[in-house]
Structures are given as structure tokens and as C-alpha cells.
């Protein structure tokens, strides 16, 4: 019985490792900031999720101590990943407004980030030069 669980845990760990490295590799490989945003928010979430589930199973089956902290970390990461992705996208739109061809809103109001920038007119931090493809 333990052997079956060992196989499951090892499988989860290997899958998690593969997804983790794919997420970080995507960060290097994809062509511009908005596409790079996709790689870590998705691939890495399942990577860390796999590690956490494997850890939970490991402590539960092989060490006989039921531990719920992993569930807490997984929930926290699943809840915060969309928020960080959204904020990074907003910061990118703010910095490189002229370079991004965003689709129209379909009404007479602009996107919220652009409206805020038009209202405030504060000195802003922007990236170094243009959004070049590296």
C-alpha cells in the first residue's frame, strides 16, 4: 500500500518539477511582456500546487501526521495569482501605453488604467525605453 502512495507522491513531484521549470523557461522564451505574463501565473501555480499536495500526502501517509498548512498555502496562491497578474498587466499598460494595441471598450469610456493616468498627470516611472522583443 505504501508503495502505491510512494508512486503517486513521486509522480506528483516530477509533474510539479516539470511544470515549474516550464513556467520559468516560458519567462525566458516568450517574446514580450504580456505573453510572458501567461507562463508564470499558470504553469508555476500547478507546479507549486503539485509540490504542496505531494507534501500533504507524504506527511499523511508516510509520517502519520495530518497537516493542513499546505492546503492553506495552495488556497492563498490560487487566490493571489490572479491579483498579481492583473496588477502587473495594469502596470505594463500604464508604462507602455503607446506600444500596446488594445481592443476598444465598446462604449464611450476608456479602460480604467488610461482614465486614471489622464486624470492624475503625475510624474510616472516607466521602463527603460521601448518594449523591445528580447
Amino acid at each position: 500500500m505504501d508503495l502505491a502512495f510512494e508512486i503517486i507522491i513521486s509522480g506528483l513531484l516530477i509533474a510539479a518539477g516539470v511544470f515549474g521549470i516550464v513556467g520559468s523557461f516560458g519567462l525566458l522564451k516568450l517574446p514580450d511582456t504580456m505573453t510572458r505574463l501567461h507562463a508564470p501565473t499558470k504553469a508555476t501555480t500547478l507546479g507549486v500546487g503539485g509540490v504542496l499536495i505531494a507534501s500533504m500526502l507524504h506527511f499523511w501517509v508516510l509520517e502519520n501526521t495530518l497537516s493542513w498548512h499546505e492546503l492553506l498555502i495552495t488556497m492563498f496562491l490560487l487566490l493571489t495569482a490572479p491579483i498579481t497578474a492583473n496588477l502587473i498587466a495594469k502596470a505594463h499598460l500604464h508604462s507602455f501605453r503607446a506600444d500596446e494595441k488594445t481592443s476598444p471598450t465598446g462604449s464611450d469610456r476608456d479602460w480604467a488604467t488610461f482614465e486614471d493616468a489622464a486624470v492624475e498627470q503625475q510624474p510616472m516611472i516607466t521602463g527603460s525605453g521601448k518594449n523591445q522583443n528580447t
Partner: peptide
């Protein structure tokens, strides 16, 4: 090699997630 500040923030965020995984491992 990041082209701007936003990319560095994104890379730092990914680093944090990787480090969480390393700590749990």
C-alpha cells in the same frame, strides 16, 4: 536581461513562487 521594470517585477514574483516550492520540498 529584462527590457523594463515590469518584467523585473514579474520575474521577482516568479522567483518567490519557486522559492516557496523549494522551501516545501
Amino acid at each position: 536581461i529584462a527590457p523594463g521594470v515590469v518584467d523585473r517585477v514579474l520575474a521577482l514574483d516568479t522567483m518567490v513562487i519557486n522559492i516557496i516550492a523549494l522551501l516545501v520540498l
